[in-house]
Design a protein around this nucleic acid. Structure first.
Lengths: 149, 149
DNA sequence: GGTTGACCTTCCCATAATGGGAGGGTATAG
DNA sequence: CTATACCCTCCCATTATGGGAAGGTCAACC
């Protein structure tokens, strides 16, 4: 009679029901265990189910969500935008215009960041071009950094 | 007799000797007062002189150093690299090869970052290109993020 | 001389995304 | 039954920047 009414399963039972523990979820999704816990804590993921020993267990659907997050991260979306994207993803009645707007916003900020870094690189390349890079101390790079006139 | 041997000047005296207070230094260098204090604290700048009321005072040379830091930041150098650059700048016997090596290292990491962001942008653009962006829910962008197959 | 507003000081907190590590409990293979 | 590998929570660190509080000071004006 003792264990009949338990709500939380043991690990072996959970596994038989198609659940994964956190390191399996990590391998399947490419998200580190540390980050999986973090995403749960900031509310990006729903709180994971637990075994009776308080171990997190993850369903196929959880794994899928983690993969979504992973891929969105690799496209450079911030956590906040990913939260929005996840909501849209789970809202089967979303207008695709909203998704597209988010994506284009992100493309634009990528373009701005790219442009800024290209300008840095070009400025620095121009300075470096004129630096002999030998044992002597005179250096157009340092001069360029010290006087912006 | 009372004030003759003081080491720390008053603000008005300091100003007459060509010193600036922190907000003047901030305006002249483009570095915020907050950051000037921070740079001092992490040892990037020597500790500033003080008035007898404990206000920081900055010489022309300090301002120049702050401008150097500002410009190096705007080229994307990290604080650690800037510390090294400052040391080289102040070492009148440096070999310019060292400066050039640092610069080229930085150019390379800029190029890597640029490439990564371009790849993000291109992937996302390709997804967005096929999204109608209307009131209907089907969305190639979300599909692309959810399945990396 | 006194008041007032602008400025200075230090100290603590927050950001964004990620990881390291300690201290203590658990699963599982042999 | 015991290793060992894994899980848990909690705290700390990173990078560069800023916000804000509590308290002292400077400057200008009456």
């Amino acid at each position: 009679m003792r264990r009949v009414q338990k709500h939380r399963p043991e690990m072996s039972q959970a596994r038989q029901s198609g659940y994964y523990n956190i390191s399996e979820a990590s391998e399947l999704s490419g998200v580190s265990a540390k980050m999986i816990r973090h995403y749960e804590q900031i509310g990006l993921m729903p709180e994971a189910d637990r075994t009776d020993a308080n171990y997190r267990i993850f369903s196929q659907s959880d794994i899928h969500t983690l993969q979504f997050i992973k891929r969105a991260r690799s496209l450079g979306f911030s956590m906040k935008k990913i939260a929005t994207l996840l909501n849209l993803y789970q809202d089967k009645g979303r207008p695709s215009s909203e998704v597209k707007r988010l994506a284009e916003e992100h493309i634009q900020s990528l373009n701005e960041a790219i442009k800024e870094m290209q300008e840095m690189r070009d400025t620095l390349s121009n300075l470096a071009k004129h630096c002999r890079g030998d044992e002597r101390p005179d250096c157009p790079i340092l001069e360029g950094i010290s006087c912006s006139h």
